[in-house]
Design a protein around this nucleic acid. Structure first.
Length: 431
RNA sequence: CGGGGCGUAGUGUAACGGUAGCACGAGUCCUUUGGGAGGAUUUAGUCCGAGUUCAAAUCUCGGCGCCCCGACCA
């Protein structure tokens, strides 16, 4: 992509009203646009990052047998009523301007809620297809916007009223099968966070509106986190302060190490649901002995837009975001500088165009800053702000010595010029 | 939902109750290319509504919005 064609722009100043680092960085770089508190648009650069994160999640979900699907955002009242969740103050009710259900007072009644979770919807779907133990187990997931009427949206993208979520649901014949799968999901989740260059702490937590049993959260340590967890300094066993009886300096119940308290951001959460939803919605199957039993379920969520914000929150310096390679909007950010000597201008331009073309042909995603009317300082500052892993410069300084100058965003200094004589060497280095 | 802060041009900021100003951005022209260039010129603003006043960005009330703390929260 050419920078000159990108419809968004970077901001020179930090948006005054934002204190959350992720919001400052994502807004300045032109990754997102805040439409209102907790409601964001994902701009071309930000959507590319989101797509990379989604790609990682898809790969790991598919690897554990998750079947991708897509459910409605309009969730019918009858579904949530079946599990007594219609009256929970979590979501947005959908009220139409002319609703035939208007009651005697003339007030309009909601027939739908905007989906804030989808256990009921998928359980209803499953009841059409599951009748025998032979139909189990299975797991299905979707990537979709979730709507939650947060009393207080905050911290940039970390707590939104509308956000991207991956939700996976699994269906089993018995508890053992559920917990076997639960472990697989745990491993898949750890891989996802690892691939996003985040260290997730597997944390025992409560079930909230979803289940009465204990659940597990994937917590990323950060001072801006809303959660407080107690972690063992030796084995990393952790419990959320909401449910734990542990205190700082207590002995770890697993290994005897010392527990300490830390702030953390919840990036994912997994729930053994048991038969709560299958009982409420009468999802049964016939086992080998011909007995009718309730399906045992689990649900598993990752806040995808929150995950993107956490990456920005953790991986940055004073100049901007430092995207991990797996989720960067582009592999490389190519800059042309023209120097003081007019003689080289055409050479620089030609060489950069050729390099851009060659990298594209080889599947390297490049943001090519071909802007002619911008000063070197501005182009370099934008490269730092946007934070692609590799910065490539073609200039009179590089033109006789190498293909281009290469600098990792995470490093202070560029690599040796002489190491990059042709595209093959460059690609090999970047891969 | 309780408490606090705030709302001036695209962005960042000034203005005692008395001419809405500055910088960046954007447009045009010229000069500029290794860390957010220079000159000339143009552009664009007091969140909405009521009130007090000769006069309101400024004071009062109401609304809306944003940020922060708390409560709540997969």
């Amino acid at each position: 992509m050419r920078f000159s064609g990108l419809f968004t722009k970077t901001l020179r100043e930090i948006p005054a009203e934002e204190t959350a680092k992720n919001a400052q960085l994502l807004l300045r770089g032109g990754f997102v646009f805040k439409n209102s508190a907790g409601v964001y648009s994902f701009l071309p650069l930000g959507w590319r990052v989101m797509s990379k994160v989604i790609k990682i999640i898809r790969e790991e979900m598919n690897a554990i047998g998750g079947q991708e699907m897509f459910m409605p955002a309009l969730v019918e009242k009858k579904y949530l009523e079946a599990t007594n969740r219609w009256n929970l103050d979590v979501g947005f009710d959908v009220v139409t301007k002319k609703n035939p259900d208007a009651d005697s007072t003339g007030s309009r009644q909601a027939g739908f809620a905007l989906g804030w979770t989808h256990e009921e919807v998928l359980t209803a779907i499953a009841s059409k297809y599951v009748s025998s133990y032979k139909d189990l187990p299975f797991a299905a997931y979707q990537l979709q916007t979730k709507f939650r009427n947060e009393a207080r949206a905050k911290s940039g993208l970390l707590r939104g009223r509308e956000f991207m979520m991956k939700d996976l649901y699994s269906f089993h014949a018995d508890e053992k099968d559920l917990f076997d799968y639960y472990e697989k999901v745990k491993e898949a989740y750890m891989k996802i966070f690892e691939r996003c260059h985040l260290r997730a702490i597997y944390t025992v937590a409560g079930g909230g509106a979803f289940t009465i049993s204990n659940t597990h959260e994937f917590q990323i340590l950060s001072d801006v986190g809303e959660d407080t967890i107690l972690i063992c300094s030796q084995c990393e066993y952790a419990e959320n302060s909401e449910i734990t009886k542990l205190k700082e300096k207590d002995e770890c119940p697993k290994c005897g190490g010392g527990m300490f308290e830390a702030k953390a951001i919840e990036a994912g959460n997994i729930f053994p649901l048991g038969t709560k939803y299958s009982e409420a919605m009468d999802l049964k199957f016939v086992d080998e002995k011909g007995e009718k039993k309730y399906v045992v379920m689990g649900s598993y969520g990752i806040g995808v837009s929150r995950l993107m914000a956490v990456i920005a929150e953790i991986h940055n310096d004073e100049k901007g975001i430092i995207w991990p390679e797996n989720v960067a909007p582009f592999n490389a950010h190519l800059i042309t500088l023209f120097g003081k000597d007019n003689d080289f201008q055409e050479d620089v331009k030609k060489k950069a165009e050729k390099l851009y073309e060659d990298l594209n042909k080889n599947g390297i995603e490049v943001l090519f800053d071909d802007r002619k009317d911008k000063s070197p300082g501005e182009k370099l500052a934008d490269a730092d702000l946007i934070g692609c892993p590799y910065r490539l410069i073609v200039s009179p300084n590089t033109i006789s010595a190498a293909l281009c100058e290469v600098k990792k965003r995470a490093n202070k200094k560029p690599e040796k010029l002489s190491d990059f004589q042709n595209v093959e060497q460059l690609i090999k280095y970047m891969k």
